[in-house]
Design a protein around this nucleic acid. Structure first.
Length: 496
RNA sequence: GCCCCCAUCGUCUAGAGGCCUAGGACGCCACCCUUUCAAGGUGGAGACCAGGGGUUCGAAUCCCCUUGGGGGCACCA
């Protein structure tokens, strides 16, 4: 059997899309599971929409996800590796020209002089009469003389591939046998534009053939196009690869996931603080499952257990809540120093945005990790959860400062007593258990509910009612800061 | 319109004829833990397996039809 070679072939006409990432992942898992080769090919023949910035976004984010490829551009705009290159379609133009030439020579393709306007009009007429849009084949039987006449008129032809009668069948790895009548393919297919640039259905086949791709694993949106590809493989005299069409990722309304209805750019998820492990884990389980009840799976585990045959046929709705849960699971599993390193950029962003006053050192972040770890649904929440540690002052709203069951006087009283207690504990007593014991004793002595006292202190120190554990937070904040913030809260109550 | 694909809790899914009075996870609800928020633990609600016909001793699982949903039909990818 030929070696396993699969590819992901994004076009740099937009940022890396969730769906593309999922297709890349499945190709990657398949290749790694079988010890095959994973290829990245950039389909940049749509020059009007392709940009270097999108290429960078795609390549960088694929790297970020950890989906390393064996052949293709190593980095955006950079060198390529692999012996089947080049891996950018705009650099493969001669090959398409040659292949088109071959098809022309064998009369499996022909020049078509119809203009876009004429074709558009034809399509309109067909739709108006309830027919399905299909090229009439007007230029299919032009004689050599007729062609010369048109050339003499200065007309530049597109090239059309002849779609013969019959039915094309293939065995899809996830769907089983699929048969499609070629009559339904829309007529002879344009493979090269009038300006000489090749079209997708053509380049994909020429390249998959040239790159010896063994398995084409892609989204279900290509299922209906597969017969065109198979016909092209045959015309080119190349054995066709195996096909596997993955179920689509869906918007909440079950339509194909789109930018309009969902957040589709991987980069946006990165920016919010989703970790690669969670995204990969989540995407892998969208449309595939291990058949067991295991849900938290690392990339290595996914590789080991991946099975194309176990892929679901129906589309899967992208459920953000489930992704968020998985993200929390993975954040809890990261090593301390790793998590710190991933948190730092978010703190830097918070500082730039003025949400915190300074960027803490790695050691400081590591020190509060136990306090914040299980409170981070995404890395980007670090500012909300722990920002008060890195602010000079905290915003104090008297109405929040005063606990529900307390009034202003009690709160003032409570904070003053608390401050005295903390101060009396001294530097040596500034330790979570001692602080808690001292403050509990204070509450008891004054007949206060400990929870109320703690809440007043919590808000005084953090400005919020939902925070990491209080006493550990006091320790992390330091004695001086704690006393200072308590004093400021007391002042605030006096002024209000 | 035509063609293709699909169909188990709201969502992701387990299920390859008897183990299913359909299991797990997310979300939701309750309780426990608890200084708040999380996390964690326990329990619960939630699917007449889209509907109807077959096949079979027996069907979520096989076949057919219907319905519903999705995708594709470009000189986009």
């Amino acid at each position: 059997m030929a070696p396993i070679r699969v590819r992901i072939a994004p076009s740099p006409t937009g940022p890396l899309h969730i769906g593309t990432a999922r297709t890349a992942l499945f190709n990657f898992l398949f290749a790694r599971h079988h010890g095959g080769t994973f290829i990245l090919r950039l389909e940049d023949t749509d020059q009007a929409r392709s940009t270097a910035a999108f290429e960078k976004d795609i390549v960088d984010n694929l790297h970020w996800l950890g989906l390393s490829w064996d052949e293709g551009p190593a980095v955006a705009g950079g060198e390529e590796r692999g012996s089947y290159g080049p891996y950018r379609q705009m650099e493969r133009l001669e090959r398409y020209a040659e292949a088109a030439e071959q098809l022309l020579r064998e009369d499996r393709a022909y020049p078509c002089y119809c203009t876009p306007d004429e074709l558009e009009a034809e399509r309109r007429r067909q739709e108006a009469t309830g027919q399905s849009p299909s090229y009439s084949g007007r230029c299919a039987r032009l004689t050599a003389v007729e062609r010369r006449t048109r050339e003499a008129e200065g007309l530049r032809p597109a090239i059309r591939f002849r779609i013969g009668p019959g039915t094309v069948a293939f065995d899809d790895a996830v769907r089983g046998r699929v048969e499609i009548d070629t009559a339904v393919l829309g007529g002879d297919l344009v493979i090269v534009r009038a300006d000489g640039t090749p079209l997708y259905h053509f380049t994909v086949v020429v390249d998959d053939a040239a790159m010896a791709v063994s398995d084409v694993i892609r989204g279900e949106d290509h299922l209906s196009n597969t017969p065109k590809h198979i016909l092209l493989f045959r015309a080119l005299g190349h054995p066709e690869p195996r096909f596997a069409h993955l179920p689509l990722i869906l918007n909440p309304d079950r339509s194909k996931m789109s930018k309009r209805k969902s957040q589709t750019a991987i980069d946006d998820y990165v920016a919010e603080g989703y970790v690669r492990e969670a995204l990969v884990n989540f995407l892998a389980l969208l449309g595939w499952s291990t058949g067991t009840e295991d849900e938290i799976l690392s990339l290595d585990e996914l590789i080991e257990r991946f099975d194309l045959g176990a892929v679901q046929k129906g589309g899967a709705v992208f459920d953000r809540q489930r992704l968020e849960w998985l993200n929390g699971q993975w954040i809890r599993r990261l090593e301390d120093d790793d998590l710190v390193e991933r948190l730092l950029p978010f703190l830097e962003a918070d500082a730039v945005a003025g949400r915190i006053d300074r960027v803490p050192a790695a050691a400081e972040v590591e020190a509060i990790l136990p306090l914040v770890r299980e409170r981070l649904p995404v890395l980007g929440s670090i500012g909300d959860v722990a920002g008060f540690f890195f602010c000079e002052e905290v915003g104090l709203d008297p109405s929040v400062l005063i606990p529900k069951r307390w009034d202003r006087a009690t709160t003032h009283d409570g904070l003053q007593a608390a401050r005295a207690t903390v101060e009396a504990a001294g530097a040596s007593g500034f330790e979570a258990e001692r602080l808690e014991a001292g403050l509990r004793a204070l509450a008891e002595e004054r007949g206060w509910k400990a929870g109320d006292l703690f809440m007043a202190i919590r808000v005084a120190l953090t400005g919020k009612t939902a925070t990491p554990p209080l006493f550990e937070s006091m320790v992390a904040l330091g004695r001086e800061q704690t006393l200072e913030r308590l004093a400021r809260a007391i002042d605030t109550l006096e002024e209000a």
